[in-house]
């Protein structure tokens, strides 16, 4: 029990609060606000054009002015409750909510598994000394540098063959897509996690080991709980990454009901010259909401967790 408490104390980012205390904020912060506001402006500026397209019945993107010629919610209506008679796509249904559901399932599963598998590997790299360890770590990063664009055909074929044997995880299945995403688990994530694990004193492990715990028990019972901040950060990064992923999904998913959100929305703009930017932009805006909510609620973890402690490693 005591080991637990000690550990949690250590993991809390106390420095943050402490440092601020004896220098209360004064109007001397004006320059910080100025810079922050300018940066925020640049960050959000293009997004305003996406919003403008979403509320514009014109179907165009960017145009030359920000204020739409005709302000309307038509695009959102088309997206959410498509009326076959009025829909500009004429095909009967838009499956926005279904796509959203697919994206959430795929992204959540992937991010949870990414965290788990990444942590397992990082723990091995952090705690054990074995042959090929340094080479392994280095190759993890280098392998990720292969241009993904060109690996598509191979991935497609692998999944197709998998599907011959295990239909539930072949092409055009969410399971299959998740499996492919898991191929990218080892890499930067493992490095980040390993860096964090390095900062958790190995005395904690050792005392648990003396108490008779197996390495697995140490991992699940001691190390993982301590690493919660970094785990949630990696979870979020992986969530956002898979939620917006287009290239792999488009190569592997085939039927509309299995589409993830970016793939489904692409249907609105897939043809040269006849892009329906309106519903597309509306869809992107709506999809951004859950992402931003997750960001806001876990912000504390992000800033304190991303590289916390690995400095001291």
């Amino acid at each position: 029990m005591t080991t637990h408490e000690q550990a949690f104390e250590r993991a809390e980012p106390q420095a943050v609060e402490r440092r601020g205390l004896h220098r209360p904020s004064l109007s001397g912060d004006w320059w910080r606000h100025l810079i922050a506001l300018a940066a925020c402006f640049i960050a959000v500026f293009p997004v305003l054009y996406v919003a403008s397209a979403a509320f514009n019945a014109d179907q165009s993107l960017g145009g030359t002015n920000l204020i739409p010629r005709s302000l309307s919610l038509e695009n959102f209506r088309e997206l959410l409750s498509p009326d076959p008679a009025k829909s500009q796509l004429q095909s009967s249904t838009s499956h926005y909510l279904r796509w959203l559901g697919n994206s959430l399932i795929v992204a959540l599963t992937t991010s949870v598994l990414t965290v788990l598998l990444g942590a397992l590997a990082a723990y091995a790299f952090s705690r054990f000394r074995f042959r090929g360890r340094r080479l392994g770590l280095l190759s993890l990063l280098l392998i990720q540098m292969f241009p993904q664009l060109l690996a598509l055909v191979a991935i497609y074929l692998i999944l197709l063959r998998t599907g011959d044997v295990f239909p539930f995880m072949g092409l055009d299945t969410r399971t299959g897509l998740i499996l492919v995403y898991l191929g990218g688990v080892m890499g930067v994530n493992t490095w980040l996690l390993k860096g964090f694990f390095d900062t958790i004193p190995s005395e904690l492990d050792e005392s648990a080991r003396v108490d008779g715990a197996t390495p697995a028990q140490v991992f699940w019972g001691v190390v993982l709980p301590l690493a919660l901040p970094i785990l949630s950060v990696i979870g979020i990064l992986s969530f956002v990454g898979t939620f917006n992923e287009y290239v792999l999904a488009s190569a592997l998913l085939q039927s509309n009901e299995n589409f993830t959100l970016p793939l489904g929305l692409r249907g609105y703009i897939d043809k040269q010259y006849t892009e329906h930017w309106g519903p597309f932009a509306a869809g992107v805006l709506l999809a951004g909401v859950p992402i931003m909510v997750i960001f806001m609620s876990l912000q504390r973890f992000i800033v304190s967790g991303l590289t916390q402690g690995s400095v001291k490693g």
Binding site: A124, R133, A154, L182
Partner: peptide, 25 residues
């Protein structure tokens, strides 16, 4: 083979979807 116990799950996917495609290419 304790390190392997931790490394196998991620490595399986790494081999299947990163290394095999490179070999294929």
């Amino acid at each position: 083979a304790i390190p392997l116990k931790f490394l196998v799950p991620g490595t399986v996917f790494l081999i299947a979807f990163q290394i095999v495609p490179i070999v294929y290419n």
